[in-house]
Amino acid sequence: MKIPENWTPAEMLFLKTPLESSVQELLRCTLFDLLFRKILELDIVSNDLNQSYFIIGPKFQNYLAKEHERTFLQVYHMNPELRILFPHLIMMAYENTRGSRPLKKGLRNSNSLNTYFKNNSFIQLFGLNILNKEGRKRQTEISRYFLYLRENMNYSVMNRNEDFLMECLKIREHIFLLDKIPGTFILQLNDTLKRLVKTRDQAALSMIGPWVNYQSIENTFLDIMIDIENAYDYIFFTSINHSSHGCSDCSSCSSCGGCGD
């Protein structure tokens, strides 16, 4: 299966599972995608990702954001010099989505996906996400393709398969739509990536696209992604929990001006 160039991982995920895909997952793959394409960058100032900043990347200025990406990017359009802590970025994106329904509506109506969903006044009224015939066909293709990736991934863990590793690099950031990627496989991918960069195999590098933005052999995009992947769920949970429940009911911290130690 060839993934269209202009599809984002969030759009892929939504088409694959329009009902089950959660805000948390959709935001996660959108953030990974923006990082991968260098529209945003992570400025790591300490070992704790909580204390790292998201800033605009070199591709930000000329990038026309899709609606679901604006949850992250809108604020940078107003203040491009902003340095936003990881938890604040997640909280802000979550707040900007205004819930699952508006986020999915934006995805459903995007230029990439609107031809795959039924659309009439009843559906608009109730905000339903129902695939049409073409959409179901696409959904099946995607599901089969990801099943194929999963099976071969498990096989490659035992018997390293260079051709398959290259295929995974070619589908770019969409690889991160597969959850629970085995650590061994990520190491294999990273090895392949580092070897390509080291040998400067231009033909191969041109095929795998944005990975080559990360040409440092010591630190590839996968290294960064593993760290973010590990931190994301915890930060999402604590940030959202804190922003939506933690403070509003509690008067102890908000009413206290501090102490004089």
Partner: peptide, 8 residues
């Protein structure tokens, strides 16, 4: 305020 407005 919203978070975005606060950061700005």
């Amino acid at each position: 305020w919203s978070i975005a407005f606060t950061l700005r």
